[in-house]
Structure formats: C-alpha cells, structure tokens
C-alpha cells in the first residue's frame, strides 16, 4: 500500500512497529540513526516517516529540521519524554503528529493512517473531502453548512472558521498556533485565550462540553477533531 520509514534506535520497538505495518500490507524500512534516516528518505521516497526523537548522535528534532528543508513527507514523531517543549518544537519544525512512548499499537497505526491520508491529499492523489461526519454531526465544507441530527446549527464566522480548519484536518492534531494563524491571522498566534473562549462555545453547539467526543483537547498542545471513518472516496487525478 504505502512505503513507510521507521526510525528508532531501540530494536524491539522498530521491529514491533515494522511487523504491524507489514501485517497491514505496507512496505517498511527501519533505520536506527538520524543520518541513516535522512539518506533513507532521499533514496526510498517514503509516504510516511515514523521518527523517534531520542536518537543517539543526531537528535530527532535536528533530523526533522534538515528533512523539512527539502521534503514534505508526513512525519509522525515518537517521543520517550513527555517534555512539552520537544513536542511543541517538533510541530514548529513541521511534524504532522506525535505519539508518546509507551503507546498502544492501535494509536500509532491510527496516527500513521491519518498522516498518510493527508500526505495523499497534499499530493492531490486523494481529493479533499466535501463532507465530514462526526457522530450525528454533518459538516458540508463546500456549502459551509453544519447540521446536528438533521437540525441546522448556526455558527458565527469565527466559529465556522474553526470548524472548517478542524474538520478538514480531521484526525490530526491542530496546534493552538496553527488554529490562531489560520482563523484569526498570523499576528494572533499567541492569543490562546481567544481560542479557549471560542472552543468552549463551539463545543456547546456541536459536542457534549462535559464529555467531548468530537473535539478533543490535547493539553498544552491543541485540539483534535475526531471524524467518522470517511467513506472510501478516492478520486485519482
């Protein structure tokens, strides 16, 4: 299906991740160092990279920085520390998502799947979705309409902006910075309190604010929109 590069210096982890990906029909290469990872991306042209940050020698963040100078391949970062700084740094350097060790295999596989889909959308292999569904929520991205259990939901322009960004990035983590920049503009990147206020209102309209299941908070990082599995709608261009 897809070519995936796994970069981890811990052989048991690299082996296990590779076995799972192969079992799902992917073509997997594993390497144990940052420099090997860079040359493997160059020669192998993978569709997705799983990158451990705690590499000996060349640190994972540095690998990511160098990679982003010439490649836009989706990167899912593995991190053994829960240091917020590393995660935030990884996103600023252009990571697509992250998983904290220890992780359940299903979680990592789900993240890789989302990353692959976005990679394909970016390349134009896969059309951007016109409609995103989550629970009883239906978001028509073309018509700019939102309905809940068939009832139309009225949104302010800012709220619509947030929903649009979140839904079209369904499954991916949208960082505070990313949302602020896309919805309010580049000069509002640091105004996190705007975001909190609007997200609270949005949850009241679209989700269960007490136990959210559609717009999830990743503390300190951002929000993740959980959509229903999209119907296979590959439109080869």
């Amino acid at each position: 299906m897809s070519r995936i590069l796994v970069v981890d210096d811990e052989p048991p982890i690299a082996r296990t991740v590779a076995a799972n990906l192969r079992a799902r029909g992917h073509e997997v290469t594993t390497v144990a160092s940052g420099s090997a990872a860079l040359s493997a991306v160059e020669t192998g042209d993978p569709d997705c990279v799983v990158l451990d940050l705690g590499l000996p020698g060349l640190h994972g963040l540095e690998v990511l920085r160098r990679l982003r100078t010439w490649s836009s391949v989706p990167v899912v970062v593995l991190t053994a520390t829960d240091a917020e700084r590393d995660k935030v740094a990884a996103f600023e350097l252009g990571a697509d998502d992250y998983v904290t060790k220890p992780f359940g295999m299903a979680e990592l596989l789900a993240r890789i799947k989302v990353a692959l889909r976005h990679g394909e959308q970016a390349k134009g292999v896969l059309a951007r979705p016109h409609v995103v569904e989550a629970g009883d929520l239906r978001i028509d991205l073309d018509a700019k309409l939102v309905s809940r259990a068939g009832e139309p939901v009225h949104l302010t322009p800012i709220e619509w902006g947030l929903v649009e960004v979140l839904a079209s990035n369904a499954g991916r983590l949208c960082t505070h910075r990313f949302l602020l920049e896309r919805v309010w503009g580049p000069r509002y990147e640091r105004e996190s309190q705007y975001l909190r206020v609007y997200m609270a209102n949005l949850r009241k309209k679209l989700d269960d604010p007490a136990a959210p299941s559609i717009i999830l908070t990743e503390p300190g990082m951002g929000y993740r929109f959980v959509a229903n599995e999209p119907a296979e709608q590959e439109v080869r261009s």
Binding site: P12, I13, G54, A80, K101, P102, M105
Partner: peptide, 26 residues
C-alpha cells in the same frame, strides 16, 4: 530525563508488543 527515558523505553517495547498481540485485525 535519563530515568524517564530508561523507564519508558522498555515499557514502550512491552506495550507495543502486547498491543500487537491483542490486535483482532491481524
């Protein structure tokens, strides 16, 4: 950092292997 990394690494391998075995899809 060192303790955190050293504790998490084997845990991560165990968790990854165990959750693979439990996966009903494969």
């Amino acid at each position: 950092n060192s303790v955190s990394h050293d504790l998490r690494t084997p845990l991560a391998s165990i968790k990854a292997s165990a959750s693979s075995l439990l996966d009903p899809e494969v």
